[in-house]
Simulated assay, not measured.
Amino acid sequence: MIKRISSTEWEVKRYKALGISKPCVNHSYVIKDKERVIIDPILAESGADYIVIPSFIELEHLTNLNKDDKYIVTKSGKKILESLGEYDYMVVDYGDELDIGDTNLKFYCTDNFIVTYWIEHDILFSGELFSQYGVLNKYDESSERKLIMSEFKEFFANILLPYREEIKRIIEGLDEVKISSIFPSHGATWRKYTSEVLFKYRFWSSGDYKDTATIVYISIYQATELIAQALKNGLEEKLKVKVHKLNYSPVTEIMRDVLDSKFILVGSPIICNDIHPKVKFFLEYMKSLKPSNKKIATPFGSYDWNDEGKDYIIKFFEELGFKVFYDNILFTRFLPSKKRLEEIKEFAEKLADLSP
């Protein structure tokens, strides 16, 4: 038997710090067998034989701790738990099993995550993995498909991407078992799309890409916007293109598209010999998420008297290990001419044929 304990958080703290307002439904789960097990102490609940802490990357999973309970942790999680006080715990490793009476739990662990598989019921308690913000329905089949898949991808791109190597190991282990339902710590339970979301995690954690391009830019006097449009016109003859203006698009949505894009193009006007501060913030945010280096990156923009700032974007791409494809025509002094825009379009057509 499973008991779900849920609570709605109307503004996710991590997103709120970015100036983004998004709700989230948080869950703890109680498994009742001869022994009582709680999956995730994110919500106040105690009095179990064991409490599994599924994630050590967010403080919210380490808040409602009780000194009378026994916690299941990883080797790295043990150090974190000890730093918070004197708690009883049991360390589990990858593949360990726990007999809780008539049924058994199997743990797929890395330094930062514990995913728990309820063997006799084919149920996965996934913690942060397979979570979504912005989805308020209880089950995936009762959610609008486009919304839940978009939020699902956005969560991976902005929360889990830095840990994709750990996730890859977990997914490889899950290939060996049958999974009928996935119960994450945030968002809807997966019952209809379990095979699809497992496939997507396998793909994203591999760092591979689709034949898509993401264009990110900000423009002041329309020059950079004209270049962005010319690049889009050239690329979309051969592949799908997503365009984001930093004036309007939240960085979390941009990273959702960058996640599996083959190409990333970033444009900025040069201000006081430097790139626009919103562009600089986006680049630093992207860097913090450690995206796959299997990407082709192209800088573009405009300037008035000095174009030195463009070197910042090129250097940034190189530090991330992206393959940089660039031509001087991509930075124009003031507004680009019609001839220049046509040349940029032709550049983009050639760009679309490249591979990382």
Rank of each mutant, 00 (worst) to 15 (best):
E154P: 04
L129V: 01
P269V: 08
I170F: 04
T194L: 05
I227A: 00
H121C: 13
E236P: 08
T63M: 07
K315A: 14
I80D: 07
K16P: 06
D33F: 09
F152W: 09
D122G: 08
T74E: 05
G267Q: 01
S21D: 11
F316A: 15
E144S: 11
E154T: 09
Y108N: 11
V258W: 07
G101F: 10
D257F: 10
N306P: 12
T63Y: 08
P299G: 08
E172Y: 10
V92K: 06
E318W: 13
I264C: 05
S83M: 02
G234I: 01
K345H: 09
N293I: 12
K153A: 12
S46I: 02
D40A: 09
P23N: 03
W305C: 14
T74Q: 06
L62M: 06
D111S: 12
F155L: 07
N273I: 14
K79A: 08
V197K: 07
F334M: 14
H121M: 13
D307S: 12
K238P: 10
D88G: 08
I100P: 07
V251E: 11
G321W: 11
F56I: 01
A297W: 09
G127L: 10
D40I: 01
F317T: 02
V30G: 02
G134H: 06
E9A: 13
V241C: 07
L351A: 07
K315M: 13
S337I: 08
Y217F: 08
K278E: 11
L129D: 00
D111F: 06
I218F: 01
S288V: 15
L59S: 15
E97S: 13
H27N: 05
S181D: 05
E11K: 14
E86Q: 10
I72Y: 04
K339Y: 14
N26K: 12
S76M: 15
G19H: 10
K339H: 14
E225G: 03
I123K: 11
F113K: 08
A230S: 09
